[in-house]
Amino acid sequence: MKEQNLADLEAAFNEKLKQDIRIEPKDWMPDAYRKTLIRQISQHAHSEIVGMLPEGNWITRAPNLRRKAVLLAKVQDEAGHGQYLYSAMETLGASREESIDDMHSGKAKYSSIFNYPTLTWADMGAVGWLVDGAAIMNQVPLCRTSYGPYARAMVRICKEESFHQRQGYEIMCTLMKGSEEQKAMAQDALNRFWWPALMMFGPSDEASTHTQQSIDWKIKRHTNDELRQMFIDATVPQAELIGLTIPDKDLKWNEERGHYDSGEINWDEFWQVVSGNGPCNAERIAARLKAKEDGMWVREAAMAHAEKKKARKAS
């Protein structure tokens, strides 16, 4: 069986996709499929890890113990999500260390949303509600993605995400029941995070280079614009319910389409942030590099200790 030629292998691979049979690590897969997955999963993992920074920023300043415990648990979950995803990526033969170095050098990307600063406590509300909300929109269909380890990691992640969004929305609800200043703070956070949250779905379908192939491979199940529309439709009523105003003067329910129409995204800003010129790009990478370098001696010492223990056992 081992001499099967390439055409047979490819036919078998395509047949599996067609029947919605998961591709597993040891199965044959086209190189480009493997590369696309490594790029997407590592980018996703980096986003979880860098995503801890804007929220980690507020842990010590949370307004009370309950909020602090919740935020701490959420940030810890994001660390876990990064670990699940790196672990899925490694099943494709990629090295975790190299992949992390690629993020530090700017060769690999992470979600551009995390290059915006978290200036007030209300931003913890906006991030949980909008950023995790958008992430959920992206991630739920990925539970059915064609690569087994990625799909299974997404199932775990999605189970944990819903508390993230709810705790953020709860923060917004609480602020909107508060003083005029608190309401203004919530509205200001929404104003700053609304558009960057919409950008999380990536370039519009016309400008997206990878979408069609990823859909053919059943890695992606919806286009960027479809997911963005789903997010807008779900989120606008949530804002209205608590008295927040979406900062888009063109936002309007379209009876005929059964969807909200919305204004044009500032794609210049999107590409600027993606290419490294967002408000916090340099700060985020510097923080990750510092974590790597400051922790280096600990990792080396742990390894040396483990080797010594092993040698002692053997002798």
């Binding site: 810890q76 876990g80 670990q83 672990s87 899925a88 742990a302 483990a306």
Partner: peptide, 21 residues
């Protein structure tokens, strides 16, 4: 899933944190 660790004991501790929260 999988986890990185220096030795088996640490692997159990890390797995506890990552997979059983």
């Amino acid at each position: 899933g999988s986890i990185h660790a220096a030795d088996a004991e640490m692997a159990v501790e890390n797995a506890r944190d990552v997979y059983t929260r």
